[in-house]
Write a protein that binds this DNA or RNA. Structure first.
Length: 142
DNA sequence: GCCAACGTTGGC
DNA sequence: GCCAACGTTGGC
């Protein structure tokens, strides 16, 4: 069983279309310790929802973790090598029907989801139940 | 453009 | 160790 996650990106900085075009993309720039700990917990084959924050505010696709945590190449020169990490992600498939934040907030089956509870956290865990539910809403078949 | 949440910094 | 000030994220 893989673990499930959600990662946020502002589409004018890095969008799902760019992820698809690049295929494998290093996920860099996380500078929050809770988010970093989640990156370090990711294992090969884990899956993550790709969420567009700010513009769109919806889950648009699914990516797979294809390289586990390594020192973030975008790290500031003053940081220590172990301070921040990146992982590599590969696009799997888009959600046929993107699932919006409004939908997630209004769905009782998704109550307590970290995306809402910890709204500023850019790398969130997702329970298997919530994962399955959102896949259904999005018309996504694994 | 505003604001809530929250992390970080620095004075004491 | 406390807390005010400030910066950032991200929704509205």
């Amino acid at each position: 069983m893989p673990n499930y996650w959600l990662v946020k990106s502002e589409p004018d900085a890095f969008s799902w279309d760019q992820q698809v075009a690049n295929r494998i993309e290093p996920w860099t720039g996380v500078r929050n310790h809770m988010a970093k700990n989640n990156l370090k917990s990711m294992r090969l084959g884990d899956l993550a929802f790709f969420y567009h924050s700010n513009i769109g505010r919806e889950i648009v696709g699914v990516v797979e973790i294809v390289r586990e945590a390594y020192p973030d190449p975008s790290m500031e020169p003053t940081a220590k090598p172990q301070d921040w990490v990146a992982v590599d992600m590969q696009a799997r498939a888009p959600l046929p029907h993107p699932v919006t934040l409004a939908t997630i907030k209004s769905d009782p089956a998704l109550a307590g989801i970290a995306l809402i509870r910890l709204s500023r956290l850019s790398v969130c865990p997702i329970s298997p139940e919530h994962w399955a539910h959102i896949c259904t809403l999005g018309g996504y078949r694994a």
